[in-house]
Simulated scan of single mutants.
Amino acid sequence: MIDPSYLPFVMAGGGIILLVIFFHYVPFFLWLSAKVSGVNISLVQLFLMRIRNVPPYVIVPGLIEAHKAGLSNITRDGLEAHFLAGGHVEKVVHALVSASKANIDLPFQMATAIDLAGRDVFEAVQMSVNPKVIDTPPVTAVAKDGIQLIAKARVTVRANIRQLVGGAGEDTVLARVGEGIVSSIGSSESHKSVLENPDSISKLVLRKGLDAGTAFEILSIDIADIDIGRNIGAALQMDQANADKNIAQAKAEERRAMAVALEQEMKAKAEEARANVIQAEAEVPKAMAEAFRSGNLGIMDYYRMKNIQADTDMRSSIARPDSHPASHDPIGK
Score class of each variant (00 low, 15 high):
residue 1 M to S: 14
residue 2 I to D: 10
residue 3 D to K: 08
residue 4 P to G: 10
residue 6 Y to S: 09
residue 6 Y to F: 15
residue 7 L to W: 12
residue 8 P to Y: 11
residue 12 A to W: 12
residue 15 G to E: 13
residue 17 I to N: 06
residue 17 I to C: 10
residue 18 L to P: 03
residue 19 L to P: 08
residue 22 F to T: 01
residue 27 P to R: 03
residue 29 F to A: 08
residue 29 F to Q: 07
residue 31 W to G: 03
residue 32 L to Y: 15
residue 34 A to L: 04
residue 34 A to Q: 00
residue 36 V to N: 11
residue 41 I to W: 01
residue 43 L to E: 06
residue 45 Q to T: 13
residue 49 M to Q: 12
residue 55 P to V: 05
residue 58 V to R: 07
residue 60 V to N: 02
residue 61 P to C: 05
residue 61 P to V: 07
residue 61 P to M: 10
residue 63 L to K: 00
residue 64 I to T: 08
residue 66 A to C: 04
residue 66 A to P: 01
residue 67 H to D: 14
residue 67 H to L: 12
residue 68 K to L: 08
residue 69 A to N: 01
residue 72 S to P: 02
residue 75 T to M: 07
residue 77 D to F: 02
residue 91 K to C: 02
residue 98 S to T: 13
residue 99 A to R: 00
residue 100 S to W: 00
residue 102 A to W: 08
residue 103 N to Q: 09
residue 105 D to L: 05
residue 105 D to T: 03
residue 112 T to N: 03
residue 113 A to L: 04
residue 119 R to G: 00
residue 120 D to Q: 04
residue 125 V to K: 02
residue 126 Q to S: 14
residue 128 S to F: 01
residue 128 S to D: 02
residue 128 S to H: 06
residue 130 N to L: 07
residue 131 P to M: 11
residue 133 V to T: 15
residue 138 P to W: 11
residue 140 T to E: 13
residue 141 A to H: 01
residue 146 G to E: 06
residue 149 L to T: 02
residue 150 I to N: 04
residue 162 R to S: 14
residue 162 R to G: 10
residue 166 G to V: 10
residue 167 G to H: 07
residue 169 G to I: 02
residue 170 E to M: 02
residue 171 D to S: 12
residue 175 A to V: 10
residue 179 E to A: 03
residue 179 E to M: 06
residue 180 G to I: 04
residue 181 I to H: 05
residue 183 S to P: 04
residue 183 S to K: 09
residue 185 I to A: 06
residue 188 S to M: 12
residue 189 E to N: 12
residue 190 S to N: 08
residue 190 S to G: 09
residue 191 H to A: 03
residue 192 K to L: 07
residue 192 K to A: 08
residue 198 P to R: 04
residue 201 I to F: 05
residue 203 K to R: 12
residue 207 R to C: 07
residue 211 D to R: 04
residue 213 G to W: 08
residue 213 G to K: 05
residue 215 A to S: 09
residue 225 D to T: 15
residue 228 I to Q: 03
residue 231 N to I: 04
residue 231 N to Q: 14
residue 232 I to C: 05
residue 232 I to L: 09
residue 240 Q to K: 06
residue 241 A to L: 05
residue 244 D to E: 00
residue 244 D to L: 01
residue 247 I to K: 06
residue 256 R to K: 11
residue 257 A to F: 04
residue 257 A to Q: 05
residue 259 A to P: 00
residue 259 A to C: 07
residue 260 V to Q: 11
residue 268 A to C: 08
residue 269 K to I: 12
residue 275 A to S: 09
residue 275 A to D: 09
residue 276 N to S: 07
residue 279 Q to D: 02
residue 280 A to I: 11
residue 280 A to H: 06
residue 282 A to V: 13
residue 282 A to K: 11
residue 292 F to I: 06
residue 293 R to A: 14
residue 293 R to N: 14
residue 294 S to D: 13
residue 296 N to Q: 13
residue 299 I to T: 07
residue 301 D to S: 03
residue 305 M to G: 13
residue 310 A to Q: 08
residue 311 D to M: 14
residue 312 T to W: 12
residue 312 T to P: 01
residue 316 S to E: 13
residue 320 R to E: 14
residue 323 S to W: 12
residue 329 D to R: 10
residue 329 D to M: 08
residue 332 G to A: 11
residue 333 K to N: 13
residue 333 K to R: 09
